[in-house]
Design a protein around this nucleic acid. Structure first.
Length: 744
DNA sequence: CTTTCGGGATTTTTT
DNA sequence: ATCCCGAAAG
């Protein structure tokens, strides 16, 4: 019975599975069979130790990881041909808790709303909503958004919340003038959210923590239930999340955390690697198991990745081993433009497909910023290669989707000012800035929601009590708007969500509004159709809860969650989103200074180390083949500039690397001679000052303005490669003859 | 008072 | 390329 769960595990893995009681820290390197250990561990508890699935909670980083864990344990369907680890327990699958911290907290807060001092219908604000609320708070506090950017204020507030610092504590600890400002906005912001019956992402954690802290009964209920707690991706948890984990583990102390400090890439979201140290401090009796054997990658890929990560100073050296073969070398490619880089990548994918039997689904292209997906998408379209784009402009972030969701939120809770103000004049209906200001002012003076203020204004209008000029036009516009909203609220109870969406589209004129936008509007209508389709997938439930559940899903679902197996297409994905995934063939594009490492990390050594970890995460996704590519030129804010190779490339041991033939190139130029560019520029620069440096702007009589890509000696002369704007493209010129004029 | 248009500044990564 | 603000037009 138990033997098959332990069979096929190495010694460390087996130890991690069997150490069920007491605190346990699992340090799991990439590809070390972490998922296997976690699932076998849970199955082992339930099957061999007779633990009830109800007593187990697992916390994952994404909803997708949660879903997959449930599937491995209980099966995909009742009679899943792929045998699950817990055969015949299909009916118990919902007893077992597995979700993200945010989803778990949202669920608890809804259930315990009464004790948490919340309304169970609270909405969840995403970042855009948060930013709106911060702006509103700043306006009330009369703080100039030009002097203090709402964005950084929000970051400061979020950082405080992630460390469980509530407004009072923040005010008490403030020391600088900037703190003083943030403190005032923070308090105001929390007030606005609570008046709007809204929680932001951080509140989900903060309020759950506070609920457990302040209500011993509720805490006891949950900590009694969850005898066994498991937290995945522990290196990317924040202080609040860890605090909640400790609260929940407070009774039984069976807490298992799994992580890898080398894969910590979310410090910007206030994740704190030091949680691993805190864990060891808080649970001095914790056992530590290290999983160091890699089963995923070739030794070449692993050694390359090790070379990269070893350059980080603040880390404990923990060797990774593998008994996999050497496999192919790591291939380094160079192109002139991102478009060409994409051609190169896609050409190679098509070649692999033909020559080595790889499917498109085997291949993933990874990049640092979402904007880089565009060149790749274009290339795929041109070559008719199917692709799956993960993220991009994320679905639930799209303007039209957010607009419809804002309408749905207003229908559910008209006192949600942020949502109401979002749609009050969308589509334009004669309620302009001035009128909105007046309404917001009225609301503020009377301490009522904007919706109520609008209601009053409309009544006054009808009774002819309002001042003349506010009369006819705007007053009637407000009345008309309220009439539509109220009609929607009334009909909501009897409608399915799809029907409600349809009603919104028709009655508010939103459909017509988009239709008038032409092509783009058509695309937007399709996105709304997609939103409508997701509503139909909702599980049957109480009509009153249906809308709340739908809105919660819309707020908490991420895009990796949508990554479905099956369809044969290449995957385009950011390095962050690639965490936890693996592919036989991985391309990492844009290996340039400023891109990866990103320019924003240049002045902070800690951030630079995080960039390196990000690269490491990407490299270790690859099982068989790894490609690293860069472009000489990178578009930037409309313009474009020359770029230097990423410093990370020089940390990949050269013996593991081979140069990628430039299959997709337009011109037959050999860049920078035969020498691989990853050696870095300084190493190979010849004697004698080059007349031009890469990155300088120059003008040519015939080709116009351009940017120097490279300048290398050629006999007694220098050969200058220039990327010209417009149709001239890339030209190689001899310096003496070209008569280039340097531009400042 | 509202809408629209143009110019200026600004972009990492996401539960 | 996209958001924000001010100015002009309706």
């Amino acid at each position: 019975m138990t033997t098959d769960l332990l069979a096929g595990l190495n010694e460390a893995q087996r130890e991690a599975v069997e150490a069920v009681d007491g605190p346990l820290l699992i340090l799991a390197g990439p590809g070390s069979g972490k998922t296997r250990v976690i699932t076998h561990r849970i199955a082992y508890m339930i099957r061999s130790l007779d633990v009830s699935p109800r007593s187990v909670a697992a916390v994952t980083f994404t909803n997708k990881a949660a879903r997959e864990m449930r599937e491995r344990l209980f099966g995909r369907s009742e009679h899943d041909p792929a045998s699950p680890l817990l055969p015949g327990m299909w009916n118990y699958r919902h007893e077992f808790t597995v979700s993200t911290f945010h989803a778990l907290c949202a669920q608890i807060l809804r259930r315990e709303a009464l004790h948490a001092g919340l309304e169970s219908t609270f909405v969840i604000y995403d970042q855009e909503d948060q930013l709106e609320a911060v702006k509103q708070a700043m306006e009330i506090q009369e703080i100039d958004p030009k002097r203090f950017s709402p964005r950084s204020v929000l970051n400061a507030i979020s950082a405080a919340k992630s460390s469980l610092i509530e407004p009072e504590a923040f005010a008490a600890a403030r020391s600088t003038f900037a703190d003083e400002i943030v403190s005032r906005i923070y308090r105001q912001y929390q007030g606005l959210l609570s008046r709007n019956n809204a929680l932001d992402f951080d509140d989900l954690l903060l309020k759950a923590y506070a609920l457990f802290r302040d209500n011993a009964q509720v805490l006891d209920k949950y900590r009694s239930r969850y005898e066994y707690l498991l937290i995945d991706e522990f290196q990317d948890t924040n202080v609040a999340q860890y605090a909640i984990a400790r609260q929940l583990a407070g009774k039984h102390r069976n807490i298992c955390v799994v992580g890898d400090p080398d894969q910590a890439i979310y410090s910007w979201r206030n994740a704190d690697i030091r949680n691993i140290l805190s864990f060891q401090r808080d649970y001095p009796d914790a056992r530590t198991v290290t999983l160091g054997e890699n089963y995923r990658s070739t030794s070449t890929i692993l050694d390359g990745a090790t070379g990269v990560i070893s350059a980080n100073n603040r880390r404990i050296d923990r060797p990774l081993t593998t008994s996999n073969g050497r496999g192919d070398p790591i291939l380094v490619g160079e192109a002139y433009t991102p478009e060409e880089e994409a051609q190169q990548v896609l050409g190679e994918i098509q070649r692999l497909r033909k020559d080595s039997g790889h499917s498109l689904g085997d291949c993933a292209v990874m990049y640092r910023v979402n904007a880089q997906s565009r060149a790749l998408e274009d290339g795929c379209l041109r070559r008719s290669i199917p692709y799956k784009l993960i993220g991009g402009v994320r679905f639930y972030q799209r303007r039209e989707v957010k607009d419809v969701i804002a309408y749905l939120r207003v229908v559910q809770n008209p006192y949600d000012d942020v949502s109401l103000l979002r749609i009050i004049n969308v589509p334009p209906r004669g309620i302009g800035q001035r009128t909105v200001e007046q309404l917001v002012h009225d609301a503020r003076v009377q301490g009522i929601p904007v919706y109520a203020a609008a209601q009053l204004a409309a009544e006054a209008e009808q009774q002819g009590q309002s001042s003349r000029d506010r009369g006819s036009r705007t007053g009637r516009a407000v009345s008309r708007f309220l009439y539509v909203v109220n009609a929607l609220i009334e009909s909501a109870g009897s409608l399915q969500i799809e029907e409600l969406i349809d009603a919104i589209m028709e009655r508010t004129g939103y459909r017509e509004h988009l239709r008038a936008e032409g092509d783009q509007g058509q695309e937007r209508l399709e996105n709304i159709a997609e939103l409508r389709a997701t509503a139909r997938e909702l599980q049957p439930m109480e009509p009153s809860e249906r809308l709340a559940a739908f809105l919660e899903g819309a707020a908490l679902v991420s895009d990796v969650d949508a990554l479905e197996e099956g369809e044969d297409a290449i995957t385009l994905i950011t390095l962050h989103q690639a965490k936890g995934l693996e592919f036989p063939v991985v391309f990492i594009v844009g290996l340039e200074e400023g891109m990866l490492p990103h320019i924003r990390s240049f002045d902070d050594p800690e951030q630079m180390e995080e960039e390196r970890r990000l690269f490491y995460v990407g490299m270790t996704r690859a099982k068989e083949r790894l490609y690293l590519t860069r472009s000489f030129r990178r578009d930037f804010r409309g313009g474009s500039g020359a770029s230097r190779p990423s410093r990370f490339l020089s940390d990949v041991p050269q013996s593991l690397v081979s140069s990628l033939a430039m299959a997709g190139r337009r011109s037959a130029v050999t860049p920078l001679g035969a020498r691989p560019a990853y050696q870095g520029s300084a190493a190979a620069e010849p004697s004698g000052e080059p007349p031009l440096k890469s990155g300088e702007r120059v003008r040519h009589a015939r080709f116009g303005d351009g940017i120097v890509v490279s300048c290398v000696p050629s006999g007694t002369d220098h050969e200058v490669t220039v990327a010209f704007k417009g149709s001239s493209g890339i030209k190689r010129l001899l310096y003496t003859f070209a008569s280039l004029e340097r531009l400042e």
